[in-house]
Simulated assay, not measured.
Amino acid sequence: MVREMDIKYRIYIYDKNRKPAMYADSGDIIIFHAQDFVENRLTDEGILKSSIIKAGFICQPCNGDVYINNAEPGDTLKVTIEKIEITAEKGTIALFPPDFEVYGKYLDREETIKVPIKDGKAIFFGGRLELPVQPMIGAIAVCPADEIEDTVTPGTYGGNMDCKYITEGTSLYLPVAVPGALLNMGDAHAMQGDGEIFSALEVPSCITAKVELIKNRQEKWPILETEDKWYVIASAESMDEATKEAMETAYHFLVKRGGGYGKKEWIILLGMVGDIEVCNVVDPRVSIRLGIPKKIAEKIIF
């Protein structure tokens, strides 16, 4: 069944006690309508992020929650991204002084920059440069079990991982921690470099996703499946800590599913072909991904 989530349902924190906006079954296709990171409020370059913050704006709305019938702690929710449609003619870059960090010494003022998007390309600097858009989902999550987190913060539940590979045709496996899972998503980017080291091209979006419940099987951290790789995505206060979490989870994921190799062999292979890559370094927790090529893990099935 195809179900559509109204854009009016927005969340800013993950809370297991909140009444769901929608109920769905395993196998359903859900259409999410997500605002951009500032609720679509920066409609022109004369409006600044600081002004909407002063007016009470809360950053990063996500469209949700969806209660998945029969989902229980210990299960996994597989979310396959079938389509990401950018629903605006322009993307937004907010040059906001608290976010300048390293580049603060080179930037002298706050600005809102609107970037036209046409025929699959983002048009920068008055037309001097055109780059192909690569729509991705910045924040996608189920609800954590014990803590109330905001949608800006990534964790074991997913969240604001800002992984540029969460895009059309990929599947994200999220560990269910509460009854119903409580799925939500938002914060789409038309394009973003690894690390999101300064900004992304923020856009509102319409996201079509298929949900499938995998009973009695899960990993500690989200697992992303692309056409050619398996990734573990882990988030922590430091890059070192996130990397250790991803290494540990990747080991258990590969060993539990066998794939024709033993424990020591998988460790050796992780050293030979495993790639540590950065998703984001700007959120309250950094996120990294550890990828392993499917060509050496052909027998791995989540």
Rank of each mutant, 00 (worst) to 15 (best):
D36W: 05
S51E: 14
E39P: 04
C62W: 00
E39I: 04
I13T: 14
I13K: 12
F37S: 13
G74S: 12
V38M: 10
Y23N: 11
E39A: 13
Y14D: 06
S50C: 09
V38D: 02
S51Y: 02
M22W: 04
N63Y: 07
G27P: 13
A34S: 15
F57V: 01
F37I: 06
F57I: 03
G46C: 14
N40D: 15
G27V: 00
G64K: 05
D44L: 09
D36F: 05
P20D: 04
K54I: 04
I53F: 07
E39C: 05
Q60M: 10
H33E: 11
Q60D: 15
K54T: 11
C62N: 06
I31L: 09
Q35E: 11
F57L: 12
M22A: 11
N17D: 11
N63I: 01
R18S: 14
P73S: 03
P73D: 03
S50T: 10
Q35R: 06
S50K: 09
A55S: 14
V38F: 08
I13D: 13
P20H: 09
P61Y: 10
N63Q: 09
Q60N: 15
I31Q: 01
P73A: 13
A55K: 13
P73H: 08
P61I: 08
C62D: 07
G64P: 00
Y14Q: 07
G64E: 03
F37G: 05
F57H: 15
E45C: 10
K49E: 10
C62I: 03
V66I: 12
G46N: 15
S50R: 13
Y23F: 11
M22N: 10
K49F: 05
V38L: 07
S26V: 01
K19N: 01
K54R: 08
I13N: 09
N63H: 07
E72T: 10
K19I: 10
D15H: 09
K54L: 13
G64A: 07
A24F: 01
M22S: 03
I68Q: 01
I31A: 02
I47G: 05
M22Y: 04
F57W: 03
D28T: 06
D25E: 10
K19M: 01
I68D: 05
I31D: 11
